Amino acid sequence: MNRRRTPRSASAEELLSTLQHLTARARQEVELHQARVELAQALQRNMLPVALPSFPGLETAARYAPARHGLDIGGDWYDVFLLPDGSLGLAIGDVQGHDVEAAAFMGQIRIAMRAIASTAADPGEVMGRTNDLILSMGSSLFATCTFFRLDPVTRDLRSARAGHVASVWATADGRSGITSDAGGLPLGIEAGQQYPVTRRTLDAEGAFVLLTDGVIEGPSLSIGDGLERIRRLVDAHCGDTAEELAEAVLRAAVLTGHEDDAAVLVLRHGPVPTGPR
Rank of each mutant, 00 (worst) to 15 (best):
T23C: 04
F81M: 03
R63H: 10
L83T: 07
L15Y: 04
R68E: 11
V50W: 07
Q34C: 09
E31S: 04
L48I: 10
R27G: 05
I73R: 00
T60G: 02
A67E: 02
E31F: 05
E59N: 05
T23G: 14
H69L: 08
H21K: 09
L15R: 15
T18S: 05
M47R: 15
A26N: 13
Y64L: 15
V37D: 06
T18N: 12
L48F: 12
F81E: 06
R36H: 08
W77G: 02
R68K: 12
L58W: 12
G74Y: 01
P66Q: 00
V80Y: 01
P49F: 11
V30S: 09
A61C: 08
G74A: 08
E31A: 09
G74F: 03
D72A: 09
S54K: 13
V30M: 10
L19A: 06
L19N: 10
G57Y: 10
H69A: 13
G75F: 02
Q41W: 07
R36K: 14
G89D: 04
S17H: 10
A42N: 15
R25E: 13
A65F: 08
P56D: 14
E14A: 13
A91S: 11
G86I: 08
T60V: 12
P84E: 13
Q28V: 09
T60F: 11
A67Y: 03
L71I: 10
G70D: 08
